[in-house]
Simulated assay, not measured.
Amino acid sequence: MRIVLTYGTFDLFHIGHVRLLQRARTFGDKLVVGVSSDKFNEEKGKKSIICYEHRAAIVAAMKDVDDVISEDSWNQKETDIKKLNADILVMGDDWEGKFDHFRDICEVKYVPRTHGISTSQLKEVLKPFSSKEISDLKDSFTTLENFIRQLNG
């Protein structure tokens, strides 16, 4: 069994995230996804709109995903690769070359990003909205999470 490992924040889940997970799954038999914790995102200077628990649940609801783990630090990847006995680390091509140092313990693949969509772009669009409108959007994501779960049965 070939184990594939990938990581991401997966905030404001969108088609680019879906495609990353679909592409990652094509490289193996089992896909494990590290979702960045809220604390780790803060350390990276990011502020997620959707909390870790909901982002992890949305990712876990995808049919291509077999397991979700919390990503809590930059140094965790090497430990996870070894612990999970991962065969392949898959990252978006915006990280091209940044994880080549893992090639001695697993295969590293960089997959193309989906052009025209990113969480950063979505956050720019959301800037003019009020806190109430953002809260309503979060509720909509919870509804989306439940819908995805129902689709995946």
Rank of each mutant, 00 (worst) to 15 (best):
D67E: 15
H54N: 08
L126G: 10
K109M: 09
R55M: 02
T119N: 01
K127C: 04
I117G: 03
H54F: 02
L89G: 01
E96C: 01
K77G: 08
V111G: 03
E124D: 14
T114S: 13
H115N: 09
K132M: 03
K46V: 01
D80N: 15
A56D: 03
K82T: 12
D66T: 05
H54D: 14
A61C: 04
V111M: 04
S73F: 07
D72T: 14
D94Q: 00
V108F: 11
C51W: 04
L122E: 04
T79R: 12
I88K: 06
W74D: 13
S118V: 07
G97H: 03
F102P: 12
D66P: 02
H54R: 08
S118L: 06
K123N: 08
K47L: 08
E42W: 03
S70W: 00
L122Q: 11
T114Y: 06
E71C: 05
I81E: 10
Q76W: 03
K77P: 08
E133S: 14
K44M: 14
D93C: 01
D93T: 00
K46R: 13
H115C: 04
W95Q: 00
L122H: 04
P128K: 08
V59R: 03
E43G: 00
E53C: 01
R103W: 10
V108T: 12
S48I: 02
F102R: 09
E96W: 02
T79M: 05
A86C: 12
A86H: 11
Y110C: 05
K82R: 14
S131T: 10
Q76A: 10
T119C: 03
I81L: 15
H101M: 15
C106S: 14
V111Y: 03
F99Y: 15
A61T: 01
E124G: 11
K82G: 04
I50R: 03
K83Y: 07
Q76L: 07
I105T: 14
H101N: 14
N85R: 15
K46H: 09
A57D: 12
S48L: 01
D66G: 10
G92C: 00
H115K: 14
C51F: 08
E107L: 11
A60H: 07
E124P: 01
D87V: 09
G92L: 00
I117H: 05
Q121M: 14
